[in-house]
């Protein structure tokens, strides 16, 4: 029979772990709410950008820009992997790496010159473990990525793309769909392909048509387009960072909730075993006493 004292010790340690996981769950929940609000605020900006693009298209502007066009020959490519700085968030980092590895392998087969950037310690270490060295490492992003910092990275990529150092940029991140669903995604951000969401643009264009407002473009539609495209890239990249941050917090919340529940179950199980062990110990002692008394009487 198990030692009652050892069981009690184990039960206590599990109780302490449960306290920690429950606290982590609460913190993750609070951070998730904050991150969610920021993501919602960013949507207001993207909506406006999409509106401007649809107005430009309405006005008959030819939407063309070097950033939108696929390059004929891709000589060098860059992959940005967005993971988290901290662990204990369930399968979040594992699923990102699971998506990233085949993609990196495939790109390396197609393109001679591929460099990998990673955000988050877990991402950097995970890739290193799998034998992939990272070029740039961004470790400054926590639950609230700042636009200023993302913009710096975006400007770097834009400069590299414009000067021809890279011909393609892929971002691997976790897209947040709902609290119960986040999927790892591979998105090609450079060249951009299209501006905004196509469906959004068409619906907005319809609304604009009915209002029948004629817009004046200052200084010219072309000049605005010149600015819209890079801005739209920056915002898209920022959105990737925001989505990753929200998904990380959700993943942590769910993982910690599971851990707290499992700890509760384990404590219940251990309490039962502990009680049984104690009872059998008491029974054993009583039997010994009775045996002793009987021996004396005999």
């Amino acid at each position: 029979m198990a030692n009652a004292r050892a069981l009690d010790k184990r039960r206590k340690s599990i109780r302490n772990i449960r306290k920690i996981t429950r606290t982590m769950e609460l913190i993750a929940t609070a951070r998730y709410k904050k991150a969610m609000d920021r993501a919602a605020a960013a949507t207001a900006y993207t909506d406006q950008i999409t509106k401007i693009v649809s107005r430009l298209a309405d006005a008959g502007t030819d939407v063309q820009h070097p950033l939108l066009e696929q390059r004929e020959k891709i000589r060098s490519s860059r992959v940005l992997v967005l993971a988290s700085n901290r662990g204990l968030c369930g399968g979040y980092n594992a699923s990102i790496l699971r998506t990233a590895m085949p993609h990196i392998k495939q790109v390396r087969d197609e393109v001679a010159n591929v460099s990998i950037d990673a955000s988050g310690k877990r991402g950097v270490n995970g890739l290193k473990f799998r034998g992939i060295e990272t070029d740039n490492q961004y470790l400054q992003f926590e639950d609230q990525p700042a636009y200023d910092e993302v913009e710096k990275i975006a400007n770097d990529y834009l400069a590299q793309y414009i000067t021809g150092k890279i011909d393609r940029l892929d971002v691997i991140y976790t897209k947040f769909i709902s609290t119960s669903k986040q999927i790892p995604m591979i998105e090609t951000l450079l060249p951009l392909g299209s501006l905004g969401d196509e469906t959004d643009a068409s619906s907005n264009a319809g609304a604009g048509g009915s209002e029948n407002s004629q817009y004046e473009f200052l200084p010219s539609a072309e000049s605005i387009l010149e600015e819209v495209v890079p801005t739209s890239f920056k915002v898209k990249l920022f959105k990737c960072f925001l989505d990753s941050a929200v998904s990380e917090q959700v993943a942590r919340m769910i993982a910690m909730k599971g851990a707290t529940e499992s700890a509760g179950d384990m404590i219940k199980q251990l309490s039962m075993t502990y009680n049984r062990a104690r009872q059998s110990q008491i029974t054993g002692e009583i039997m010994e006493i009775i045996g002793g008394v009987e021996a004396l009487e005999g």
Partner: peptide, 16 residues
């Protein structure tokens, strides 16, 4: 390309 003042009733415009 310079400052632009807007008062109530301005015609619709998009600018850089």
């Amino acid at each position: 390309d310079g400052e632009l003042g807007v008062q109530a009733g301005r015609a619709p415009m998009i600018g850089r």
